[in-house]
Design a protein around this nucleic acid. Structure first.
Lengths: 147, 147
DNA sequence: CTGAATCCGATCAGATACTG
DNA sequence: CAGTATCTGATCGGATTCAG
C-alpha cells in the first residue's frame, strides 16, 4: 500500500508564536508532514489545476504530462487524505471519477500562489547567482588541479 | 559531486500572467527547480534559523539535530548556489565559516513564513481529515475482505 | 572545525501487467 | 476509465573515513 505517514502520531501542540524549533525538528511533528506534502513534486501542480475547475483523473493525467499513472494516483490519495481535495465517484460504466479542491485546499492554493509568484519574480536573480557560483567553483577547480 | 541541477538549461521565459502550465510541466523550467529547492527537507529550516542571525556550520548542525553532516553541507551548498545564503570563510585555524541570509533569502523567508503559518493554522483540520480518511478506508477494507 | 569522498542500504518512482 | 499490484532500476541519504 505504501502509505506515507503512520496513523498514530503525537502532533506537537503549537504554542502560537513563531518559534522555528517548533515547526520541524521532529518527524512526528504535523507541520513537517504537511510541509512535506506541499513540497511534493506533483501536489502543487495538481492543486493549481484543480483550483481552476473540477477535473477527471485522465484529464489531470493528460494535463500534467510527465507524471506517471502511479504517481498521480499516489499524489491524489495523499491530497485527499489531507482533506485538500475531494474525490467523487460516479457509479456509471465506464467509471467516472472527479476531483475537486475543498475549501481547505483553496486556502492552501492562495499560499502556494504567493510562493510561485516569488519564484517567478526572482527567477533571473537566482539564475544569475547560479552561474556566478558555477563560474566561481569552476575557477577554484582549475586552481586545485593546478591547471 | 552529486550536483542537483545541470548548468546549461533553457529557463522558460514567463509570460507574466499566472498560467499553471508555465510553472512546471518541464524539468528544465526554472520555477520547478526553485520550488524543488524550497521543498527540500532542510532548506526551510536553515533559512528560518539564519533569518534570526548569522550562524556557523556546527551551530546549525547542533540546532537542527537530526540532519546529518552530509545533508547539511549539501543543503547549504544548494542554498548558496541559488544566492539565498552567503558563506563566509575566515582564514583562521581552526577554520571558521559563517552563514548568513542574503537579502534575497530574506524575502523568501517571508513567503515561507506564510506557508508555515498556514500549516499551523490548519493543523487540526488536516489531522481530522486524515483520521476520517483512515477510518473510511479501513471500513472499506473490512468490506472487501468480507469481515 | 568544516568539509569532501566513498560505500551501501532504504526508499522512490517508472514501466508493465492485470482488474472491476 | 480509473485504478491496483508487482518488479526493478534510479536516487537519496546516513555512516564512515579522510583531509585542509
Amino acid at each position: 500500500m505504501e502509505d506515507g505517514t503512520s496513523k498514530a502520531q503525537s502532533y506537537c501542540e503549537g504554542t502560537g508564536d513563531y518559534d522555528v524549533r517548533q515547526w520541524d525538528q521532529r518527524e512526528d511533528c504535523e507541520v513537517r508532514q504537511i510541509l512535506d506534502r506541499v513540497a511534493d513534486k506533483w501536489s502543487l501542480l495538481v492543486i493549481a489545476l484543480l483550483d481552476r475547475r473540477t477535473m477527471r483523473f485522465s484529464e489531470l493525467r493528460r494535463e500534467i504530462d510527465g507524471v506517471s499513472q502511479r504517481m498521480l494516483t499516489v499524489t491524489l490519495r495523499h491530497l485527499e487524505r489531507d482533506g485538500l481535495i475531494r474525490r467523487t465517484v460516479y457509479p456509471v460504466v465506464p467509471p467516472r471519477v472527479e476531483y475537486t479542491l475543498t475549501p481547505l485546499g483553496e486556502t492552501l492554493h492562495e499560499v502556494i500562489k504567493s510562493l510561485v509568484d516569488w519564484t517567478e519574480a526572482h527567477q533571473q536573480e537566482i539564475a544569475r547567482a547560479r552561474s556566478e557560483y558555477d563560474a566561481r567553483t569552476e575557477a577554484e577547480q582549475r586552481i586545485a588541479v593546478g591547471s
